[in-house]
């Protein structure tokens, strides 16, 4: 049963990754029609001639968490809250006994069909014309509807600002001609960001080259993520069937003291 389900999901993943690329080739106009209930509102701000996306070459990721740390510092996220992070898994082949570590960097997918945008009751979160999904923290009421609506857990309520917070592809750095902090700090050069509307950009060339091998997370949700993974195992595109290893250790009054391992 599991194998059937996985292969089905794998096909879905590939199909959807292909579908996600369609808007690039057709260069669809960025602004959509006036939105009905739970449909995408018109995009605003940003450069309409660009569409940012990210390709993560998992073969280059060593799970050093440099991206996690540099993002944390660049964007001043509160302790324990992350705009990007790298999930790490230990995979054990039961027959051969081989062990492998799998690293999965996670961040906002800046989806082509972002479920977090239409739910916002005050249009504080919106998609720019360059595809980047951002939050206007002066307008956000902190209802957290978007946090629940994002299937990737890419959003959180910032403890300090009490508003929704998320990865912005470091839009402030892109504007200044810099790379996002996570890309800049990636030791293996695993994260590639760029304008997918420019056929000569590195990301466009890589997408063309590896089109069939690219996968996105949770393709069945029809969010059309624009963060593409190269060297991905399809079993990790949805919530992996895995055993949690770390247990929180709490003091008697509920304060977190540290972690304890099962194994």
């Amino acid at each position: 049963m599991d194998a059937v389900r996985r292969s089905l999901l794998g096909q879905l993943a590939r199909l959807s990754a292909g579908a996600a690329l369609v808007p690039l080739s057709s260069l669809a106009p960025a602004s959509l029609a006036q939105a009905g209930i739970n449909q995408q509102p018109a995009r605003r701000e940003g450069d309409p001639s660009k569409r940012y996306g990210m390709l993560i070459d998992l073969r280059q990721c060593i799970g050093c968490q440099a991206c996690t740390v540099s993002c944390h510092i660049e964007n001043a996220a509160p302790l324990g809250q992350f705009r990007t992070t790298v999930s790490q898994y230990e995979v054990h082949h039961q027959e051969s006994g081989e062990l492998a570590t799998f690293m999965l960097p996670r961040l906002c997918n800046h989806c082509e069909n972002p479920p977090c945008v239409p739910v916002c009751p005050v249009e504080a979160t919106y998609q720019q014309q360059d595809g980047i999904v951002v939050v206007d923290s002066d307008r956000c009421v902190g209802c957290a509807y978007c946090v629940n609506a994002c299937p990737y857990d890419a959003r959180f309520i910032n403890e300090r600002t009490q508003t929704a917070d998320k990865c912005t592809f470091c839009a402030h750095r892109l504007e200044a001609g810099l790379l996002p902090a996570c890309v800049e700090s990636c030791v293996g050069g695993a994260r590639i960001i760029g304008d997918m509307r420019n056929p000569d950009s590195q990301i466009s060339r890589l997408i063309n080259e590896h089109r069939d091998a690219l996968m996105v997370l949770q393709p069945e949700k029809n969010t059309l993520p624009q963060v593409f993974y190269l060297g991905m195992d399809e079993r990790f595109t949805t919530r992996p069937v895995a055993e949690p290893v770390a247990l929180e250790v709490l003091a008697p009054h509920g304060q977190e003291m540290g972690y304890e391992f099962h194994h």
């Binding site: 939105a35 916002c120 005050v122 956000c140 209802c143 309520i157």
Partner: peptide, 26 residues
């Protein structure tokens, strides 16, 4: 009280829209 920014409740009316069920509810 469930809003993290309760004093901004007036934003619901200043930025009302038709695509969010929560906005319609407000």
């Amino acid at each position: 009280a469930d809003l993290h920014q309760p004093l901004r409740f007036w934003h619901f009316y200043a930025y009302a829209n038709t695509h969010s069920w929560m906005s319609i509810g407000s």
